[in-house]
Each structure stands twice: as C-alpha cells, then as structure tokens.
C-alpha cells in the first residue's frame, strides 16, 4: 500500500484550502485596491446595454452594498461556472474565452516543463559528476546568466533570429489562418510548427533552475557514505552515477516541480505576448489593455486553479516515485 489515508486527506485538504483562498482573493483584492466592483464587473460604458448591466448586477449582488451578500452571490455564480461577461469579447462569457485559451497555454507549458526537466537533469548530472571541470563551470556560468534574463526577451531574440532572419519558424500565432481546409495530419503539423519556438523559449528560460537544483542535490548525494561503499564494492561508474547517485538526487527535486510550475506560467504569460500565441497570457494582456476587468479576474482564477490542480496531481504521483513521502 503506497498511499496512506492521512497523507491523502492532508494533500486534498490543502488543495481545497488553497483553492478557497485563491477564490476569495479574487473577490477581495479588486475591492481592496479601491476599485469600484460594480462598475468594474458590469460597466454600462463597456457593455453598452442597460439590460445586460442590470442582469449582471443582480446576478453578482452588486445592487446590494453588503460585502457578505456580494460574496455569497459571487460564490454561487462561480459554482455555476459564471465569471461574468468579457467586455472586449462581448457577448462572450469570461469562462468561454478562458476555456478556449487554456489548452494552448497548458500544452506549451507542460511540454516545456517536462523537456526542460529532462535536459536540465542530464546537464546537472554530468556537471556534478565532474564538479569543477570545464563543462561544469561553463554550464554553471550559463545557468546563472539564463536565470537573469527575462523570458520575453529570449522570446524576442528567438523570433528575430529564427523567424525573421532565418525564416525557419512563423512570426507568431498558433495555427495557419487557412487551417480549416487542412487535413487532420496537416493540422497537427501546423500546431506543432507554430508551438516549437514558444516551447523552445520556455525550455531555455527554465533550464537554468533545473540544472542548478539537480547539480546541488547530486553533489550532496555523492558525499554520502553509500556512494563510497558502492565504489569500494567495485560497481561501474555508470551504475553509481545513475542507479545510485542520480536516482537519489532526482527525488527531492521533484518537489521543485510544484513551485516551478507557477514560475513557468508567469513566464509563459509574457512569452505568449511576444509570439501572439492565443493562450492565457495573451488573453490577460489584451484584457489589461482593454481594461476588461471581468476577464482579468477570470484569468487569475483560471491560472490559480490550474496550478493548484497540477500540484495536487504532483502530490498524488510523488508517493509512487518515493514511498518515504507518504509514510510520515
């Protein structure tokens, strides 16, 4: 039995509390910032229709000054999947706009995170095994440098080199304009072709963190007594490196996955703007430009919820990789 019920309940409970806090922040923060929620959520100027404004105000309890009443209404609407109406995409509901954007962001972020982990691990292992070597020093230096560069700048540079001068990749967007006439295979090809550079940007921008974490972990493992014992037993270098060293160094770095995901999504938001990639980031950016407050709130909620769900999944997968986690 790899799961124990206490661990399971704790993780589930934590996820629910986080979710609740995120939802409440989404309600409270705009009000604390001195914004006028009634005109932010249901602006007659932005929506241009008095009936819609009236209906929205009634739905979200904005006709009643009591904060508690508004909060209850807000939670109630949320449970029904109603996040209000986007101004810029009127009459599309916020939820629809977000649901359309989410898969693009998710696809690129998850692919990039997994690949970046893989590459980062391989480089980190090699560096730690020969600590102080030319390879180790140059990767460390590069990693420090990459850690200091904003994601969107890497994105602009890549577009300039690979899309504009070399013309290997498109300048932006996620699909060809004429995609409807394509066959299924061509559609997939078009999506992959457009996604390559954004994913590549995210990989390069997040690589440094993974290299540094794994290198540090492995350095610590290498100084353990059992590594010396393995050497004394005459085990091959490859076996000591991967089966003994890397395996034990990988496990703790898995927890980093959770916090790194939030970081990657933060970076993806700005990267998407550069690539005009139609994900959550671009939606958020346009919402900010248009003062589309319901959409800004909706995008915060969608980002927070997806990160919380991913963390929960990671928490549930973790005991399968490292049984010690669920024991205490």
């Amino acid at each position: 039995m790899r799961y124990n019920s206490v661990y399971l309940l704790k993780r589930l409970g934590f996820a629910f509390i986080t979710l609740y806090v995120a939802i409440t922040l989404n309600f409270l923060l705009p009000r604390l910032m001195g914004g006028d929620p009634a005109s932010a959520l249901a602006s007659e100027k932005a929506l241009g229709s008095q009936e819609v404004v009236k209906a929205l105000k009634a739905q979200f309890g904005l006709d009643n000054p009591s904060l508690l009443y508004q909060y209850a209404k807000y939670l109630n609407q949320l449970l029904h999947g109603n996040l209000g109406v986007s101004y810029a995409n009127y009459p599309s509901p916020v939820a629809d706009v977000m649901v359309k954007a989410l898969p693009w962001t998710f696809g690129t972020v998850l692919t990039a995170t997994l690949l970046s982990y893989l590459v980062g691990w391989l480089i980190g292992i090699r560096g730690a095994w020969k600590a102080g070597s030319l390879f180790d020093n140059s990767t460390l230096f590069t990693a420090f440098f990459l850690n200091s560069v904003p994601f969107f700048w890497i994105a602009i540079i890549f577009i300039m080199i690979f899309s504009f001068y070399l013309e290997w990749f498109p300048l932006g967007q996620a699909i060809d304009p004429g995609i409807d006439s394509f066959s299924a295979l061509d559609k997939i090809k078009s999506v992959l072709y457009h996604a390559f550079l954004p994913v590549f940007t995210l990989i390069i921008a997040t690589l440094a963190g993974h290299i540094l974490v794994l290198r540090n972990n492995l350095m610590r493992v290498l100084s353990e007594d059992y590594m010396l014992l393995a050497k004394a037993k005459g085990l091959s270098a490859a076996r000591r490196k991967y089966a003994y060293g890397a395996r034990n160094a990988l496990l703790p770095s898995f927890t980093g996955f959770m916090t790194s995901l939030g970081h990657v999504i933060g970076g993806a938001i700005t990267t998407e703007i550069v690539f005009s990639y139609p994900g959550v980031g671009l939606v958020t950016f346009n919402a900010i430009l248009n003062h589309d407050y319901p959409l800004i709130q909706g995008s915060f909620l969608f980002i927070a919820v997806s990160v919380i769900v991913c963390n929960l999944i990671a928490d549930l997968v973790y005991p399968l990789i490292d049984p010690r986690v669920a024991l205490n």
């Binding site: 923060l29 705009p30 916090t259 939030g262 938001i269 915060f300 990160v307 919380i308």
Partner: peptide
C-alpha cells in the same frame, strides 16, 4: 507559494 506570484501582481 502555489498561487503564481505574477498572476497575483497582475490582479
């Protein structure tokens, strides 16, 4: 730590 900081800053 779980809620992305940039999203909080944006809102």
């Amino acid at each position: 730590l779980i809620i992305p900081t940039l999203a909080l800053m944006i809102i």
